[in-house]
Nucleic acid binder design. Structure first.
Lengths: 343, 343
DNA sequence: TTGAAAGCGCTAACAC
DNA sequence: GTGTTAGCGCTTTCAA
C-alpha cells in the first residue's frame, strides 16, 4: 500500500472544511447542505477518492469480509462453488478472501489464523482430507466468528452446513446401473473419516440391498483420484471376480478407471459401466463421455454464503440451519441403456 | 467481524501494565525485561491473542496484501498460476485477495475498485477478453499501486509482465506437426486484440513460412473454447479444402475439434493432427490424449509474484522487468509420429 | 449546517 | 525498562 491515495483529511484541507463534514457529505448524510455535498462529492470524484476499507473496518468493527477455505481451486467443483459464493457476496457488498488448504492440515490451520487476523466476519470451509483435529475450527467459534461447512463437512463442530445429497446421489446412480443390468458393482470412495464418504457408501450399500445384491468387501475400495482409480480398477479387473461396474467418488477417479479399462481391452459400457461424481469439466472430454452426478456446485456456494450472512447478521440466533442440495444423475455413455421393457 | 477477539488493551489492563509494553513484549523488543516478555507472551498465548491486521495495516500504511485478478478460476491454467502466486506469497508473509473478472470488462473495473479500497500493495492481472480500455489499470498506477501483468498482458500500460513464450510455443508445435507430414494446418485463435493471440499466430505463420507452406486465410479462425472449436472444426472438415491439422488456442478448443472429428469419422491422428495449448487437466482425459504445450503455470505465478514484490519493496526503481516463461511441447496421441528417417 | 473531539487497535517517538 | 502521547483514516457523538 502506498501513500498515493487521497484521504478525507486531504479533501477537508483542500476545501477548507472539517473532515467530519467531508465524511458526512460523502455518506449523503441529510444534515449536510446540498451545496457542500455537491462540492465535496465533485471534488472526491475528480480526485478519485476511495475510502480506505481498513480504516472503515477498524472503526466499525465489521470487516464485510468472508473467508473461504477450500482444499484446492484446481478442483473444478471447488472453483465452481466459489463462483456461487462470490455471486452472493457481491450482491451483499461483501468481499471474499479465498485460501487453499491443498489437503494439508497444517496449512488449513494457518489459513484459519490468517482469517482471524484479517478479522473476517465469517468463514466458509470445506475441510482437507487430512484434517482430523478440530481445534482450529473451534477457535473461530471461540472468537465469535461463525462458520458454515460445505461439502466436506466436519461433524465434530456444531454449526450450519451445506451438503450435497451424497446419499441419494449415490443411491440413484447405483440403482440406475443395477437397472441397466449391472450386478457386481465396485465402490471407489474417499478416506472413510469424511462424512461425504460415509454417506455415499451408504447410498451405494442401500441400493445393493434394495435389489438384493450381495455386498462384497473386496469391491469397496479407497480411491479418489485418477491415479488411484486407475490402479484400483486395474487390480479389480484382473481379479477372478471382476466387477461389472464402478461407482466412483469423483470424475477424476472415473477417468482413471476408464483408462485402465481401455488398457485392458475391457469395453465400456458393454463389459463394465462407470459412473463418476461431480459433472466436472473433464466429464465431457473422456471417450465415452462420463455418466456422472451433478452436484450443482454454484448452488452449494450460494446457499453457504446465504447461511453465513444470516449468521453474521443475526449473531444472537443460535439455531443452526442446514441445507441439502439435490443432485442429478447425468446419463452419458459410460453406462448402459435401460432395457426397453423396464419403462 | 465480532467483538470476540482480545486486544492489546485487554492484555494491558489484565496485567496492569501499559499497552505499549504489551506491544513491545509481543514484538520481542529488546528493551523489554525478560520477565515482562514472558508474562505477556504467556498470557497472549493462553488467551489466543491475534493481532488485528486491519489496525496494523492502517498504522503501517502497508497492507501486505497482493490483489490478483484473473478471468476465471475454473480455468485450470489460472488456478495453477494462483498456486504459484500463493506459494511465493506465503514465503514472504503476504496475503492474496483473488478476484474473478469472468471475462467481463465492467466486473474487472469493479475488481480494481475493490482492490484499491482494500489498499493492496500491488496487483497481478491477467486481463479479460472483453477489456479494451485501460483507465482502470492506469488508476492503479496513479494511486501508486504497482501492477504486473501475466499471460494476458496489456500493452497499453507500461509495466512489468510475465508471459508465456507463446510465439516459440506455437512455432515449435506447428513445426512439429509439419515435420510429421502435415501440410494444411488450421489455426484456431483467440480475439485478435490480445497480445497472446498475435504472438501465437505469428509463431504459427512463421513456422509455415519457414517450411514454405502456403498461408490460407480460411484456415485462420477465431475459436477459443470447446463449443467454438467444435463448430469451426466441423465447418473446416466439411469444406472442399479440408485441413490436415489444427493448432489450437487451448486444450478446451482442441477437445472440441476432437469431438467434431470423431463425429465426422475423421481419424485422429491418421487423417488430422490436433495440438492444444496449456497441458490442462483435460488433456490426458481425451481419447486419444492431447498433444499440447505446457506453459508451466505455477512458474508464471511465482515469477509474477516475485516481480511485484520487487516493485513493492523498491518503489523508486523505475525499470520494468519482464519475464518470459519457456514452454514445452508435450507429445501425446493426437499428432502423428515423426518419420524415422528424419532423425 | 458544521466543527471539535474521541476512539477503533496498534506502534513509535519521546519522556522518565 | 516502562508509561505517555500521538496518529494511521474514518465516523459519530456532542456542542455550537
Amino acid at each position: 500500500m502506498k501513500k498515493g491515495q487521497i484521504t478525507i483529511k486531504d479533501i477537508a484541507k483542500e476545501l477548507n472544511i472539517s473532515a467530519s463534514t467531508v465524511s458526512r457529505a460523502l455518506n449523503n448524510n441529510p444534515d449536510i447542505s446540498p451545496e457542500t455535498r455537491e462540492l465535496v462529492q465533485k471534488f472526491a470524484k475528480e480526485h478519485k477518492y476511495k475510502p480506505n476499507s481498513m480504516a472503515m473496518n477498524l472503526r466499525s468493527k465489521h470487516s464485510n469480509i468472508i473467508g473461504v477455505i477450500v482444499p484446492e481451486l484446481a478442483n473444478h467443483f471447488f472453483s465452481s462453488v466459489l463462483s456461487g459464493i462470490e455471486l452472493v457476496a457481491e450482491e451483499h457488498d461483501y468481499q471474499v478472501i479465498v485460501c487453499q488448504s491443498l489437503e494439508d492440515y497444517s496449512k488449513e490451520v494457518r489459513n484459519v489464523q490468517t482469517l482471524i487476523k484479517a478479522r473476517v466476519c465469517g468463514v466458509l470451509i470445506s475441510q482437507s482430507k487430512t484434517t482430523t483435529k478440530y481445534e482450529h475450527f473451534q477457535e473461530l467459534i471461540d472468537n465469535d466468528i461463525p462458520i458454515i461447512f460445505f461439502d466436506r463437512i466436519c461433524t465434530g463442530i456444531d454449526t450450519g452446513k451445506v451438503v450435497v445429497d451424497d446419499y441419494s446421489g449415490t443411491f440413484n446412480a447405483t440403482e440406475y446401473m443395477i437397472n441397466t443390468g449391472c450386478k457386481r458393482i465396485a465402490f471407489l470412495g474417499a478416506p472413510p473419516h469424511l462424512e461425504i464418504s460415509k454417506n455415499r457408501k451408504n447410498g451405494y450399500l442401500d441400493a445393493l440391498r434394495k435389489h438384493h445384491l450381495p455386498i462384497e468387501d473386496d469391491f469397496i475400495c479407497g480411491a479418489d483420484n485418477k491415479q488411484l482409480g486407475y490402479q484400483t480398477a486395474k487390480e479389480l479387473l484382473l481379479s477372478v471376480n471382476k466387477p461389472d461396474a464402478f461407482m466412483c467418488m469423483n470424475d477424476y477417479t472415473a477417468s482413471g478407471v476408464l483408462v485402465a479399462a481401455k488398457e485392458l481391452g475391457v469395453k465400456v459400457p458393454e463389459e463394465i459401466s462407470i459412473c463418476g461424481f461431480s459433472n466436472s469439466n473433464i466429464s465431457q472430454d473422456t471417450d465415452p463421455m462420463l455418466t456422472t452426478v451433478d452436484q450443482y456446485p454454484a448452488k452449494v456456494g450460494e446457499e453457504a454464503m446465504n447461511l453465513i450472512l444470516e449468521k453474521v447478521n443475526n449473531p444472537e440466533k443460535q439455531e443452526r440451519k442446514n441445507r441439502i442440495i439435490k443432485t442429478n444423475l447425468i446419463i452419458r455413455n459410460t453406462t448402459k441403456q435401460l432395457p426397453e421393457n423396464e419403462e
